[in-house]
Structure formats: C-alpha cells, structure tokens
C-alpha cells in the first residue's frame, strides 16, 4: 500500500496555465474555424478567379476591351470619386463637432449618422425614387425643367452617397473622442490658429483612422449593388456600374465575362482587406505610442 496520497492531475497530466486549452481541443477548434471559413470565404473567393479564367486568359482580357465594360468602370470610378470626398468632408466635420465640443442632442446625432447602415440597400435606392422619380414628390418639377435624376447618373451618385454616408464619421468620432482636446488646446495656447492646429496637430493624430474610413467607404462605393440597382435603370453603357454589369452579364449566361468583371471587384476587395489590415497595424502602433505618452 502506498501511504502517501497522490494528487491526481486531470486532463492528461500536463502542466498548463489555467487559460490554456488541451491540445486536442485547440486542434478541434482551429480545424472547425478553418473548415467554416474555408467553405464560406476562401472557396467562393477562389471560384471567382477560376471561373473568370475558365476559358483561358484571352477571353478574360477580351471582357475589358468591351466599351460597355469600360463605361461601367468609368461610372464606378466617378461614383467613388464623388462619394468618397463628400462623405470624408462630412465625416471630418461631424467628428470635429461631436468629439471636440459638448452640446445638447449629441447622442441623437450619433444615432442619425448610423442610420444608413441599418437601412436595406433596396430602400436606400427607393427613397430617392420616391423623391425624384416620375411619380415622386419632386418628379413633376424636375420633368418640367427636363432634369433627370432617377435612371441617370445623379441618382446613382445619390444612392452611393447614402450607403457610404457613415463610414468616415463612425471611424473618426470614437478615435477623436478618445484623444480629447488637450493637444489642440496646447496648440492654441502656443499661438496656433484654428487651421494650423487642425493641419499640424489633429490631422497627424487621426490620419490612420481617416485612411481606414476612406478605404472602407471607397470599397462600398465601388461595390454597392442593391441601392444603385434600384435607381440605375440598367441602361447599358450609360447607367451601368461594375456590380450592375456583373448582373447583366451573368443573366445573359456569359459566365466568363461576368466572372471576369467580378474578379476585378474581388481584387478591389482583397486590396481593401490588405490595406485595411496594414492600416490597422499602423493604428495599433500609434495608439500604443499614444497611451504610453499619456500614462505617467
């Protein structure tokens, strides 16, 4: 008989920190995550390129010589070129007012800024049809003056503005709130004007957050489908953006061309993700520096 009692070690008897899981469980969970993400993310991603190149590089490249495709590319670029700067300007203004000042109704304003994210893309298009369409509130007035917004480029721009509205603002507001107004005050006391304070102190502090918001805003502006679909009218070569062009080609059973155009948008998405994770790294570094700078 062994008189000394032995403490039995549980779970394989290995010495583990309390926060560590056993090896089999780690393998199981990592495996499950890989399987799920592989099936839902990686396979669709790979399939886009596979189908685009199914008939070789020739037919793939041919798609991009089609003037209709080129005009879709142009319109997509125009939409982003309008939506991104305007929403960036708005985001910066809203963030400055909200983060650097105290005023009544701030919480309501924050909720309203987020509103476009909670609205279905279809409805985001519909609201402009109801306002500017032939049957809309301003329809007759616009018709009299021969102005067309719906089923024309202005409608596409408006719908794009709406769906990308919050991106920059919601990125900057929490960032600028966390930074407070101390550095701006220091700059003012040192004799800097408002503009100089903004350019030399505020902007360098928020540049990564701003870039992050712009990247996301741009991705959505170029990729929006539902809202734009409602207001576009699908006139080939005129009111077709790239995502709408994908739909048309796909419905015409022109799979190679549809996936070729889709591959362009996918590349944009991959580039967006790469830039995003690069900016996240930069931002984390500058946040770490900032928290080191303010804590004694």
């Amino acid at each position: 008989m062994n008189p000394t009692p032995r403490l039995s070690r549980t779970e394989g008897g290995s010495r583990r920190r309390a926060t560590h899981d056993p090896r089999w469980m780690r393998a199981l969970l990592v495996g499950a995550a890989f399987l799920f993400l592989g099936l839902f993310l990686f396979v669709p991603l790979a399939s886009v390129f596979a189908h685009a190149l199914a008939k070789g590089i020739g037919p793939y490249l041919e798609t991009f010589q089609d003037p209709v495709t080129l005009s879709a590319i142009r319109l997509t670029l125009i939409a982003a070129a309008v939506a991104v700067p305007l929403n960036t300007l708005f985001g910066v203004c809203a963030a400055w007012a909200i983060a650097k000042f105290d005023f009544r109704g701030k919480q309501v304003l924050l909720t309203l800024i987020d509103l476009p994210f909670s609205v279905s893309p279809v409805i985001s298009g519909l609201i402009y049809v109801l306002l500017f369409g032939a049957q809309g509130w301003l329809g007759p007035w616009l018709a009299e003056r021969d102005l067309q917004i719906i089923f024309a480029i202005p409608g596409i721009l408006l719908a794009t503005l709406f769906v990308t509205f919050p991106f920059v603002a919601r990125e900057l507001i929490p960032l600028m709130q966390a930074q407070g107004r101390m550095e701006e005050e220091a700059a003012m006391v040192l004799g800097a004007s408002g503009w100089k304070t903004w350019w030399r102190v505020t902007l360098p502090n928020i540049k990564w957050g701003l870039l992050y918001g712009i990247i996301l805003c741009n991705a959505r502006a170029m990729g929006e489908f539902g809202a734009v679909s409602v207001v576009s009218g699908h006139i080939r070569g005129q009111t077709n953006t790239l995502p709408l062009h994908v739909e048309i080609l796909y419905n015409e059973y022109n799979a190679v061309a549809a996936f070729a155009v889709a591959s362009l948008l996918t590349l944009l998405a991959v580039l967006t993700l790469a830039l995003k994770s690069w900016v996240e790294g930069k931002q984390a570094a500058s946040l770490a520096a900032a928290s080191a700078a303010t804590s004694p």
Partner: peptide, 22 residues
C-alpha cells in the same frame, strides 16, 4: 484568416451572389 474574416464586408454583394450561386 483574421484579415479574411472581413471579406463579406469588402466583397461587392453581386460578386458574392454569383460566386455562391455557381
């Protein structure tokens, strides 16, 4: 993997649609 998680945010929905359908 961490970066890829955001793919559904970044990928235009029409592309996701035709890719999943196919």
């Amino acid at each position: 993997v961490d970066a890829l998680v955001d793919l559904p945010f970044a990928l235009p929905t029409a592309v996701a649609g035709i890719a999943l359908t196919t």
